[in-house]
Design a protein around this nucleic acid. Structure first.
Lengths: 202, 202
DNA sequence: GGATTGACATACGAGATGTATGCCAATATC
DNA sequence: GATATTGGCATACATCTCGTATGTCAATCC
């Protein structure tokens, strides 16, 4: 327990706070999460939180960064597994919608964080997962599979459509049925961005 | 000052509170708006607010309903003025993006209210303006100008794309340029929903 | 091995919300 | 027309949360 014990302990408390905050924010929401409560749950106090993250918003930023990086990793893994570029692109977007249905992601990334931190496109993480999606669009364009669109604009429009769709699905009376409708419409939308000469459905 | 003076006075204070809340929410945001402050600005106290709206959230709901109805009215007026159904549909959506750029609408309808009240599609107002847009899609579909899509899904996807685009534009370094890019991409998206046999650009 | 740093806890003050209570004018009743 | 009553709104109070200032003790450094 000597040598790096100081740094290790610090990293551990930081991680504990991050996890406690993430759990609280992801369940009861940012506004309703009392710093006293969830730090105590982690066996710590607000003192530690202010030391590591500056304030409540700072902790949220750290949580967002963590989740964002997890999301982009998952997306990358999915598009890499696909048999073709276009298929990978479609898979990735469908996966994005599905991820957006997860309560923690829904609540933190799509509901609370935009309200507290402002427009996601301005976050320091610069929305890693949006950029991952744009990258794939760029590749498809280079390969001539995509109609002539501004890929950043397309990525943002599709992202907006996806996240709203996910929110809609998540709060629908019948999420299963709603999801099917949304995904079908979404595939149609993606297909409309494909160059006709590549015919055939993804 | 007799007769209906009681009811009139009440309606007046209600309106004052609504206006004061709307102004505060629309500028500094919901969370940072102190009820003591903005009620005082209206020459009232929180007592009146609790009497009329139950709580802070209740006032926000009322504000949202007011704005939502104003928005759908404006949209309707725009689509009615257009020379053709399809043109009206396009005009309406472009107008929707432009409205979404207005700071008050941006802040209240797209940033704060979803965080506080949850998914807009579940709001009591049922998002009047979204429904107005869906109605137009339905009409275009009936007239055979629209490809075979689920119009509610389409309305929600396009709505998601629009509102995100607006948020992106509003917080961009160069809103003018960003707006041009976004609107161009958006037109392309709408055009892709049009039945090919109707050729020609909107 | 003592000085110092710094990770974290504790103590305190400043709002903000929600509720309970009180007051006064407008309406209803006789 | 005078009294009773309702209810719109203000005032007072309790509670909770955040942020800062301060304290403490162990780990690191010389």
């Amino acid at each position: 327990m000597v040598g790096k014990s100081r740094k290790e302990a610090m990293a551990e408390t930081r991680q504990k706070l991050l996890a406690a905050g993430r759990k609280a924010f992801g369940t009861i929401g940012y506004a309703a999460s009392s710093m006293d409560d969830f730090t105590a749950e982690a066996g710590l106090t607000r003192g530690a939180l202010y030391h590591h993250f500056g304030d409540k918003e700072g902790l949220l930023r750290a949580v967002v960064e963590e989740i964002d990086s997890e999301m982009s990793e998952r997306l990358l893994a999915i598009s890499m597994k696909a048999p073709s570029r276009w298929q990978g692109l479609v898979d990735e977007w469908i996966a994005y919608i599905e991820m957006a249905l997860e309560p923690e992601i829904q609540r933190i990334m799509f509901r609370d964080a935009p309200a507290v931190l402002g427009d996601p496109s301005q976050w320091p993480s610069a929305n890693a997962c949006i950029m991952a999606l744009k990258t794939n669009l760029d590749a498809a364009k280079t390969e001539g599979q995509l109609i002539d669109v501004d890929t950043e604009v397309a990525a943002r429009l599709i992202n907006g459509a996806s996240s709203h769709a996910a929110t809609w699905i998540a709060s629908a009376d019948d999420p299963e049925a709603t999801s099917k409708r949304a995904v079908a419409g979404f595939r149609l939308l993606l297909e409309s961005l494909r160059k006709p000469d590549h015919g055939g459905t993804a």
